[in-house]
Design a protein around this nucleic acid. Structure first.
Lengths: 343, 343
DNA sequence: CTGAAAGCGCTTACAG
DNA sequence: CTGAAAGCGCTTACAG
């Protein structure tokens, strides 16, 4: 059995409450007894039982992390390890542990989260993906449980959130293509159940409008956030619009699939079709051609969302904060001037 | 304040211990009082406080997960999300939560783990990487704390572990290249501080020997498990051995970097250099050329290691189990017959 | 500056 | 089948 506070107290010849006080660095404790207690702890190899502590302090010093559905390949998107790096970095700095909630279905995922929330195993929760129909968010909101979102909530909830300005980012990506002379520009995005898809589509539209290019719904294709998803969507687009010369793809993995699709049709990137991706994953530099992509600073997203959540946990009365993280178009070799422009 | 077991007891007109018993599905409780208690729980929206429960049962129903150093890009290797998928799948099935331990340095990582172990916040720990000098493993071993390793421990510890037969896998990859007629075959692996590097190097040597090709130390290069690491290592190899016609790379991300390096030297894969990778990441199908790689069934690795750990947690007296997961060479387009063989 | 007591929200022998 | 009591390992007013 591991030694308890009582064992330490006995060995040091003091009351357990005194041991607790030196643990808490209470300044009222005399240097002499403090040393005696410290010595006893050392001798016994004592470490406080955090579970007991959590029970009385009513705080767990842990944050729940809601991953996307583990059944899907999306889980493998480097976006997730990268946000988690950011999240865990500030969590560690601020003394918080991370409890993972995963599920293979949306139902399982929801249950996993509610289980840790109801069981009082976490002080707050971070959702890694913002859905249009955010049932989990609604539930957390109803319980007034500290929660934070990577992405934007659709409703006016008192919930922390951090996002890129995805409208602006997609605008820039599309404007870049338009500036290169492209006019038949496709757009591949994820399901419209994700808020990010809505925003990026809006940015795409906004750029077209500004350049006086009419929006054509059939130039938009949807797919999963995977290579296969991007591949299928691009094939679809190419079938519908053989005259397409460029495409904005809402995720790099999808963009890799899109490039693959172009190749399957016997064409080349960027000679025949220009491609710009999103998220600037590490692989982007290593594909042929290297992929032009929008850097979204995923790590920062994780850092900031955690800072905001911890702030909210520590000051529940204060309104939940939110913030935007900048973006940056990283130009590589996957885009070329439109052929018409060359003539 | 959330309702407690006392509130439920009062409303149902029973003793708290009775409420506890219906919570535990104790069959001795009469159907009638059980219904009354259930009703009261529902009315109050009662959910048990897991922290309190954990304190008395001395179990936490959570497993600690030790990630690699978050400071490094290695963290982004798809290997990790994929093992975690496997781990979380069985953890969920068996009613365990996952607590994440990360650190930017090895020291921080160690402290994070010891913090959760000493604080009794986890029932067992899974280490995601096996180092030759496994201090953390040694410490856990000394405390007789239930632990499991993805990889092989170097010492004879009573610790669960699951690994591929990496000697055999590297043997097969190398033999494939030898079978294609290659004789000047390079080997790019990670640092020798990792057990997996040792094993894969052994498999490479074994294949050479069997085909009567002498082992040349200068054909081996080391690098980090990232694209950059593979790129640098390949450049090194190419400088030392311009006559090299094939290379076995211990990780797909590194292999992507290696292909990039070949390109930088004005050569082509597989025309001038054949490349085989390891781990069969999803991207492997989408690179140009598609990468031949050894599938290691990462998800299975995660599943099995978790099953073994939970078994050990539930039966501490029993010896820790271990297991091997099969591997499979997936042939794509990154290897070609050696030119000499063509003549 | 330190001790004694009460309590956090549960579970589990022990009785009956 | 159910109740009353003790206890898990801490913290924190309350006294002195």
């Amino acid at each position: 059995m591991a030694p308890t506070i009582k064992d330490v107290a006995k060995l040091a010849g003091v009351n357990p409450s005194t041991v607790s006080r030196v643990l808490a660095n209470n300044p009222k404790i005399s240097e002499e007894t403090r040393q005696r207690v410290l010595q006893a702890m050392k001798e016994l190899g004592y470490h406080p039982n955090l579970v007991a502590r959590n029970l009385v302090t009513r705080s767990t010093e842990t944050i729940g992390l809601v991953m996307p559905r583990a059944a899907e390949e999306v889980f493998l998107n480097p976006f997730f390890p990268e946000v988690i790096r950011g999240i865990s970095s500030v969590a560690r700095r601020e003394g918080y542990d991370l409890l993972l909630a995963t599920g293979e279905t949306e139902q399982e995922e929801k249950e996993a989260v509610l289980r840790m929330v109801r069981g009082r195993r976490v002080d707050g929760v971070i959702l890694l993906v913002s859905r249009v129909d955010n049932q989990l968010g609604a539930e957390l909101q109803a319980r007034k449980f500290p929660a934070a979102l990577v992405g934007k909530p659709l409703h006016d909830w008192d919930m922390c959130w951090v996002d890129n300005d995805n409208i602006e980012a997609a605008y820039q990506a599309t404007a870049y293509l338009l500036g290169l002379g492209h006019r038949r520009i496709g757009c591949i995005i994820g399901s419209l159940e994700f808020v990010v898809s809505l925003d990026r589509l809006d940015g795409y539209k906004k750029a077209l409008q500004e350049f006086g290019v009419g929006f054509d719904r059939s130039l938009v294709a949807h797919g999963e956030y995977t290579q296969e998803g991007g591949e299928r969507a691009m094939l679809e687009l190419l079938d519908r619009h053989p005259d397409l010369t460029a495409v904005v793809v809402a995720d790099d993995l999808m963009a890799f699939g899109a490039i693959q699709a172009v190749r399957e049709r016997g064409m080349k990137v960027p000679r025949d079709v220009s491609v710009v991706g999103f998220n600037n994953v590490p692989m982007a530099r290593f594909t042929a051609p290297p992929l032009t992509s929008v850097e979204i600073f995923t790590y920062e997203l994780g850092v900031r969302v955690t800072e905001l959540l911890i702030e909210k946990i520590r000051n529940p009365a204060r309104k939940a904060g939110h913030d935007f993280i900048r973006t940056e178009l990283v130009i590589r070799k996957s885009c070329a001037p439109a052929k018409e422009a060359k003539n």
